[in-house]
Write a protein that binds this DNA or RNA. Structure first.
Lengths: 324, 324
DNA sequence: CCTTGACCTGAAACGCGTTTCACAAATTAT
DNA sequence: ATAATTTGTGAAACGCGTTTCAGGTCAAGG
């Protein structure tokens, strides 16, 4: 395929002039500009983007690290990022990691290698110290309720939101409360667990470790929760559930077992994704898509000023429906 | 940042040798290899991937074109692609187009520009002729029930699947059938419409244009369907719905209007995504994730042999549940 | 002792667009 | 009319890793 030098030769100009035409620089006479354009047309020329990237030292691409795409939370987050990226003419490179730490670091390595200009972590399993090694290479944004000031972060206040849910259940007369979390190893889950334990103490209720169910991520996991529930001798009267999907699965599975919500037990979850609305699930809204667009904006801000490191907190909102 | 020449200088070898070490070529003495490795370590060197891309003329990245990420169908498809891509060490670049034709073509332009080695279209709005202009530039895979042989394609047999749904409803005694489709302009919808019209004729039922409802994509659209249904003087006894999400929305909204499924009307949809299972929706399974992985495999096949252009058809399966 | 092939190494060319610098020509300002 | 800009253009350097080619060494085979 033709390159810029050939265009220059055929159009009878220098490569610099061709480059200027390509980039709409001023200071090119219309005569030469036309000649170049005509030649480009004739040879069906198209710029080699890799050469541009190499030359400019940047690619206008950012990496997005997420465990899985096929989950409403992450696909909403990703969509928020993608919409904002599009506005800024930035391309997204996906790193679906399934929480594999090496794959998470892979994104950072690609940042070092100039494949991408920055990285947005939608979630991560890798230790924070390891991230720190890559600080300063390029803008890095974390979608998490961060304790650190090294990287800009975007999230809701997880503990606060969790307490909101707990308090709501308590206000409705529930004291025997079980919780369903995602990855128990995750920092969020740790915080939520602590908040739960504390709250139980405050209301003078026994803290039952068995009432913390982990690995609740998808609709299907709701069945697992009900199975466990059925086994318990002592039953909770309410569940605080990490996300709408699981809550939906629980409610459906409850019905299969002739249990009704909220009569047999109440359910409140997080997200306020469409499914919670149609099933009448009381939920705490997490502005997932905005989280994504804010994350991208934080990336932009940091790319303008590498010192930038804000902690962006978006508000949550309780939607009272019929599951409590 | 250091480059390969500096490493070579400090290690006292040639750049070729450094390159060989970097690429694990044989024929490098251990002494020199160690020296290079040590120097790389010392300078904290990391390869400039853009230079590699430029030099190799390829990037090991493929573009994925889809209208929206935040929809179970597309995120499942994308996940299938992503998993397979990971196995092949290929990175994905996202093109979320919202069915904007220019953005779809943008992906092809990036292919021309060597940003990506190939393109997978999860869905498209752009005319086929326009795609044809880009044929031969690089592997291009279409996820659609294609009539053409120019590009490899991956899909289910849409008309057949649609007829399966129609026949099932008929076999259950339904004749007054309405259908809910996605983008009416899409080729799939056109085919389905034709199949619907034909089937109505076969069973001697009047073809009612009003009973074809378009723009049914998300859960929320289910409400719209029910609103229309309530307006109709003559009511259908069954709906064939383009995807589970809409069916779920319909069933929920039906309940809000004191209608019960399948008593007031039956519903059968497509996808067999988790939501259909928990809501007991009779559905025709589309192996969405496999569609994605097959699409990626077709990309790989075509990248090995540019002449490759198979039409891959995956089977569908009817899941009888309680909505018919 | 000679041939052959495996092993090792470096110089140079290649992929290709951008940008800086120097300089000339045409305007505008003084 | 002269100085100061603005406009227009090209040569050359730059970003950087890969690959080809030619040449050399050394051990095994005949």
């Amino acid at each position: 395929m033709a390159n810029i030098r050939e265009i220059a030769r055929l159009a009878g100009v220098s490569v610099s002039t061709v480059s200027r035409v390509l980039n709409n620089h001023p200071y090119v006479s219309t005569a030469k500009k036309d000649a170049v354009l005509k030649t480009i047309e004739k040879l069906d020329y198209s710029r080699n983007i890799n050469a541009v990237h190499l030359s400019q030292g940047k690619t206008n691409m950012v990496g997005v690290v997420l465990p899985t795409i096929n989950h409403p939370y992450f696909s909403a987050l990703l969509e928020g990022i993608a919409e904002e990226a599009m506005k800024h003419n930035v391309q997204l490179v996906l790193f679906q990691t399934d929480y594999n730490q090496d794959k998470e670091l892979e994104a950072l390595e690609q940042l070092r290698g100039h494949l991408i200009d920055g990285v947005i972590f939608c979630s991560r399993a890798v230790q924070f110290d390891l991230l720190l090694n890559y600080k300063g290479i390029g803008p890095t944004v974390l979608c998490e309720d961060a304790d650190q000031q090294e990287f800009p972060s975007v999230s809701i206040k997880h503990v606060e939101a969790f307490n909101l849910g707990l308090d709501y259940l308590v206000s409705k007369g529930h004291e025997k409360i079980a919780i369903c979390l995602g990855r128990l190893e995750g920092t969020n889950s740790q915080k939520r667990k602590a908040a739960y334990e504390k709250k139980m103490k405050v209301i003078g209720e026994k803290f039952r470790r068995e009432w913390i169910i982990g690995q609740c991520l998808m609709i299907e996991d709701g069945k697992k929760v009900i199975d466990e529930y059925l086994e318990w001798d002592e039953k909770p009267t309410a569940f605080l559930v990490g996300n709408d999907q699981v809550a939906a699965g629980m409610i459906a599975e409850a019905k299969n077992n002739e249990l009704t919500v909220p009569e047999d037990f109440a359910v409140i979850s997080f997200d306020n994704h469409p499914i919670s609305k149609i099933l009448g699930i009381t939920t705490i809204e997490i502005p997932t898509k905005q989280l994504g667009s804010s994350a991208f904006m934080a990336y932009i801000d940091q790319s303008k000023d590498i010192e930038y490191s804000d902690k962006i907190v978006l508000p949550v909102k309780l939607w009272e429906r019929k599951s409590v």
